[in-house]
Design a protein around this nucleic acid. Structure first.
Lengths: 239, 239
DNA sequence: TTCAAGCGGATTGTTGACAATAATGCTTCA
DNA sequence: TGAAGCATTATTGTCAACAATCCGCTTGAA
């Protein structure tokens, strides 16, 4: 728990983080801290002392503060001047807000993806889907892969929009919050069969280059997920 | 040009910036620097030396760097490690991307506003509209007020969504870029009559609490503005 | 004349120390 | 016994100096 940062362990997921260095110290501590928050290493509400973090990551307080400022603008940290920073704790209404934004943004992403995705990207998406369907057949402990796989599906469509502003907002901004929530509450879609079917129809719309249909389906897909969240038991009352 | 920051002159617009202090130095220099960029005081592409800025604003490099990092994540500054930071220069494709995002986000904002706006907020919006119509009648040099007034209209609807995530993304993130572009190219809507009419219909939908209609109209409104931009002469070729 | 390699200057990245602010615990008085 | 006020203390905010990196220029040779 007190290892210097050096990006030691496996970093297979989170493509944001290029395992090696090559960037500045502040950038590395930013990536590392973000990862620790998202993966639940640092629990929401945790008070983060600057000197403590600085020694923990083996850097000075300068770069650390820059990283904190950036995480703060990504809503992963909450800071009060002269008091301190703590890990953002998402409430259920916050998550509902995020899903409204996702609905709008990813709907647009699907529309643009239908226009701008290359044929190779689409066929890659088809392959990913059949892979997910096989995992679903196996009915193994697919919770983890299902979770990340779902994210991966959405990732690819977002990238397929070829709109950098959109990509930044979604992947650089919102998805870390969603992932943090999922890790925190082990929230896995409890409607995997239906979700897969929705994914399949979205891909069909993409293959048909039907932007309006793709947007409509994606919005429905996310809207249902949101309703699912709204109906679910609030955090802490999970079985 | 070399006055200490102290927030000296008129700051009637940009409600983001509370003229007085009360926040930390880094926060103040962040706000001031952002304002200078948006208002075109610092032109796009300008190289920003840290020591130079530090002396200019009368602070040390520490707080300044924190402000720079935050502006960078808002896409107002572009930074290259070990090289330097410069004011972001928007290209036309960038602006088109932003308008796609605005279409999605403000469409959702209008939908939510129809549900969540208070009656007082709506009547305030009606008053604002009639005020704009009068200014339009006067046909004075309404370029400036038209510009800011349009922004104000959209501001209010965004706030009316009562979705903080959405508000942050739009007002805290995207609108500064839009304003920067408008100041830079003096881009005022060259279809004011039509835009006003579209505003009026949006408000009607809001009054009817028709979320779907409000979203549809808002999306059309922004989509048309985007098409207008796409057809327009690229920067530098303006008369 | 042109290209490449090496050097110098300037700028950014990082650090540790100093100052200021807010939370905490204790003392004291009603 | 409780509450208000004050001093202490730990933490954050800020600063100035040090180290590392990059850019441009000179210099030399092909």
């Amino acid at each position: 728990m007190s290892d210097p940062l050096e990006k030691d362990p496996q970093s297979e997921l989170s493509p944001d983080i290029t395992g090696t260095d090559g960037r500045t110290l502040a950038d590395r501590v930013f990536a590392r801290l973000q990862d620790d928050i998202v993966r639940g290493e640092l629990l929401p509400g945790t008070k983060l002392g600057e000197t403590e973090l600085a020694t923990r990551y083996g850097v000075s307080r300068g770069p650390l503060r820059e990283a904190i400022r950036r995480l703060e603008s990504r809503k992963l940290l909450e800071r009060v001047p002269h008091v301190g920073t703590r890990v953002a704790s998402l409430t259920l209404p916050d998550l509902v807000e995020i899903y409204h934004v996702r609905e709008a943004l990813e709907g647009m992403a699907a529309r643009l993806a239908a226009q701008h995705m290359t044929d190779e990207e689409i066929s890659g998406l088809v392959a990913l889907l059949s892979q997910h369907e096989q995992q679903q057949d196996l009915k193994e402990d697919t919770a983890y892969f299902q979770r990340e796989g779902d994210l991966d599906f959405h990732y690819r469509i977002i990238q397929g929009s070829h709109n950098d502003t959109l990509i930044q907002m979604l992947i650089g901004g919102l998805y870390h919050l969603v992932r943090m929530y999922r890790y925190q509450f082990s929230t896995v879609a409890n409607r995997p069969q239906r979700a897969l079917q929705e994914h399949r129809r979205i891909i069909e719309a993409l293959e048909a280059r039907d932007g309006e249909m793709a947007e409509l389906l994606m919005r429905r897909h996310i809207s249902r997920a949101r309703e699912n969240i709204e109906r679910s038991t609030p955090p802490g009352e999970n079985p």
